[in-house]
Amino acid sequence: MTDNSTQSRTVGGGGGVSIGGAPVSYTAILAALVAVMALVPASIVVGGMAGGWPLHDVIHPVVGLLLGPIAGPIASLIGTVIGNVIAPYTNLGPWGVLIGSMCAFTVGMVMYPGRSYWFIPWIITLVAHLVYLYQSLTFGISFPLWLSNVFTVDLGLILIAIPQIRNWAIATIREGVRSWKLYVALYVVFFFGSTAGIQLNWVPAFATNPWPAEVWPALIFIIAVERIAFSAVGALIGFGLLAAIRRSPIAKAKLAGY
């Protein structure tokens, strides 16, 4: 059942200072949340510069859903930069900011109110995917090894491109269904956002600091577990937040996707 009460408490762009239809306060709060979550390492980094993978990777899809495709990426970007300063042990390097920004942008575009803009991040991700393939083959990485590392990206691209799955997920999230269906719908959209973010990061990261072939086999399991598990945790957080927000008097951002 659709929660129509949220429509009357949507924050527009004309009342107070806003960024992309979201109050600056909303953007600041979520940016702070991203920064704080950088203090907690959620995984390991193989062949990288950091000591741990930042936990804020799980929250970027939620940021895109709550703030939309403009304020969402900005909040993720600011939060990641601050997180890199206060928690250098989870700093993923100069290109790490692309993960959260692209993730939030992707979810925001997929869930853009009243529009079907999912194909924009889809095309960006596909182009980055093909560029990454060229980089890998040129560096001497075999196609099977490359595919074993990026199959989660392929899965994300395929799932969101299937109209029945995409339209069902979007409708379920917007209708506010409070059941396992909402969790699954969030997972589908968040998984695409998560894989889009990591793929965009891989291109410049590999161009500036290519990983040797011996590192790639170790990444197969780690990458798969990260994208699957992080999306699952993010969907769980999103499920709880949506339930709480819809019961509260908090006005939603103009371009929010729920």
Rank of each mutant, 00 (worst) to 15 (best):
Leu147Gly: 02
Gly21Arg: 00
Val40Asn: 07
Phe192Met: 05
Pro94Phe: 08
Ser194Ile: 08
Leu92Cys: 03
Ala207Pro: 06
Arg246Phe: 02
Ala87Leu: 07
Phe192His: 01
Tyr132Trp: 12
Val11Lys: 08
Leu236Met: 10
Ile160Thr: 01
Gly197Thr: 06
Leu255Asn: 02
Phe221Gly: 08
Val150Leu: 07
Trp95His: 10
Ala171Glu: 15
Thr172Met: 13
Val184Asp: 05
Ile86Val: 15
Tyr183Val: 06
Asp154Val: 02
Thr27Ala: 14
Trp168Val: 06
Ile250Met: 13
Val184Ile: 15
Trp180Tyr: 12
Asp154Gln: 10
Arg227Val: 01
Gly140Tyr: 10
Ala207Val: 14
Ile162Met: 07
Tyr112Ala: 08
Cys103Met: 13
Gly197Arg: 04
Val177Asp: 12
Leu157His: 04
Val110Cys: 02
Ala42Ser: 14
Ser8Pro: 02
Val131Arg: 09
Phe191Tyr: 11
Leu241Ile: 14
Ile59His: 06
Val215Leu: 13
Gly72His: 02
Ser248Tyr: 05
Val131Lys: 09
Ser194Asp: 09
Ser76Pro: 05
Tyr26Asp: 06
Gly108Ile: 06
Phe190Cys: 03
Pro121Ala: 03
Leu98Pro: 00
Trp118Gln: 00
Ile250His: 07
Val24Cys: 06
Tyr26Met: 07
Ala104Met: 12
Gly234Ser: 09
Asn91Tyr: 13
Gly79Ile: 04
Gly21Trp: 00
Val81Leu: 15
Val46Gly: 03
Val81Ile: 15
Gln164Lys: 15
Thr125Gln: 11
Ser248Phe: 04
Pro212Val: 07
Ile99Thr: 14
Val62Pro: 01
Ser194Trp: 07
Ser5Met: 09
Ile78Cys: 03
Leu200Met: 10
Met111Ser: 01
Pro94Cys: 08
Thr6Lys: 10
Ala229Phe: 15
Pro54Ser: 09
Val110Trp: 00
Asn201Leu: 10
Leu236Asn: 01
Thr6Asp: 05
Gly64Asn: 10
Trp122Asp: 00
Ala244Pro: 05
Trp202Ile: 10
Ile173Ala: 06
Phe151Tyr: 12
Ala213Pro: 08
Gly52Trp: 06
Val36Glu: 11
Thr195Arg: 11
Gly156Met: 03
Ala196Asp: 00
Ile99Glu: 12
His129Leu: 13
Ser194His: 12
Met111Asn: 01
Asn167Trp: 11
Val34His: 01
Leu33Gln: 09
Arg227Ile: 00
Gln135Thr: 07
Ser8Trp: 11
Ile86Asn: 12
Ile160Met: 06
Val107Trp: 01
Ala104Thr: 10
His56Gln: 13
Leu255Gly: 00
Trp216Tyr: 12
Tyr258Arg: 02
Ser116Val: 07
Phe105Thr: 00
Pro163His: 04
Ala171Thr: 15
Ile250Phe: 14
Gly64Glu: 14
His56Pro: 04
Pro113His: 06
Leu55Ser: 09
Ile228Pro: 03
Leu219Ile: 14
Gly79Lys: 01
Pro210Lys: 11
Asn4Arg: 12
Thr80Glu: 01
Ser5Arg: 14
Ala128Met: 10
Arg227Lys: 13
Ile160Tyr: 03
Trp216Gly: 00
Ala196Trp: 01
Lys181Asp: 14
Gln164Ile: 08
Val17Asp: 03
Ile237Pro: 03
Ile173Arg: 05
Glu226Val: 15
Gly257Ala: 06
Ala50His: 03
Ile220Val: 14
Gly96Phe: 06
Ser116Ile: 05
Val46Cys: 07
Tyr134Leu: 14
Pro210Glu: 09
Leu30Arg: 08
Leu39His: 11
